[in-house]
Simulated assay, not measured.
Amino acid sequence: MTGAADFTVLGGSGYIGSRLVAHLRSLGHSVWAPLRADPKVFTRPLGHVIYCVGLTADFRTRPFDTVEAHVSLLADVLHRSRFSSLLYLSSTRVYMGAASTQEDAPLFVQPSDASYLYNLSKLTGESLCHASGRPAVRVARLSNVVGPGMDAESGNMVADLLQQARQGRVVLHSNPNSAKDYIHVSDVLDWLPRIALQGSHSVYNVASGHQTTHAQWLEWLQQRTGCVVDVSSHAPHHSFSPINVSRMQDEFNVVARCPPDIIQGVF
């Protein structure tokens, strides 16, 4: 990575944003993490912006806040702010229903399904980034981020399972064979600044490239806590395609933590 730089982290109070602020400062970068309504976002130079503002678990009950976070504020920043680069944090959830998880693949949406509001708002934010005409504007599609200090109230499934396991009993409400891609927060913190400062593409998948089943999480949690595990009857099976990570690997020569290392990094 290049030398010290000036960063602005929007959404710096969230799980990823707060840790990114601390990580960037530990590398010697100057970091500003303004509050959401700080008007100086539109008057002072921002340097390299990493846009971490977003909603996750409650997007279905807060549709207008979701659009405000993923689209409206972003539009104002792209239109009015002065910055050297901007990295918008999107999600690999946008690949729901897609035939490929390569960054340039066509994507599928279903506006009548409320579950797609998150995807649509993230994709609208991505489209704004591409159409803004501003140089050095990029998108990072994050997989399911896990790590120490996860908040079970955020809707993170692993955080919820971990909280239950520490209380002695886990109830899983989805099929144990369901599988997703998980990436440890330390890999995310390492990769995002590289993309922001050096990325040669407009979109990157920030993921591990490994599928981890719910059954694996339950096995690891039982080994470490001795918890009892129950699975709800008729628990639905959720199938997600493996995330293509060749672009990150080829350009930055990075390798994400494997699933066994991820679970060790969560405790």
Rank of each mutant, 00 (worst) to 15 (best):
E103G: 02
L142S: 04
A131P: 03
F83C: 08
L117N: 13
L162Y: 15
L128M: 10
A140C: 11
S127E: 13
D160V: 10
N175D: 15
V146G: 07
P148G: 12
A152N: 05
G168P: 09
A105Y: 12
L123W: 11
H173D: 12
N177A: 13
K180Q: 10
K180M: 08
P111Y: 15
P148Y: 05
T101E: 02
D113K: 13
P176W: 06
V158Y: 05
C129K: 11
Y95I: 00
H130I: 08
Q110P: 01
S85M: 03
A99M: 10
V146R: 10
L123R: 14
G149I: 09
L120H: 03
S90V: 08
A131I: 10
R169W: 11
N144Y: 06
L123S: 07
S178R: 06
S100Y: 11
Y116K: 02
A159T: 02
G155C: 05
R166N: 08
H130C: 05
L162W: 15
L107Q: 13
P148W: 01
L86E: 01
S115Q: 13
A98C: 04
S121R: 10
L128W: 09
L89G: 10
R80T: 02
V146H: 01
G155I: 13
R166G: 10
D113F: 13
S91P: 11
V139R: 03
Q167K: 15
R82F: 11
Q102M: 11
K122M: 03
Q102H: 15
A165V: 05
L78W: 00
V171F: 13
R93K: 12
L172Q: 06
C129E: 02
L107D: 01
K122T: 09
S84M: 10
V146L: 07
Y95C: 00
S112V: 14
V109Y: 09
D181R: 03
L87M: 00
G125H: 12
R134Q: 09
A152F: 15
Q163D: 06
L120W: 04
E126Y: 06
L128N: 08
Q164D: 03
L161A: 10
Q110N: 15
Y88K: 00
A99P: 04
Q102Y: 15
S121C: 11
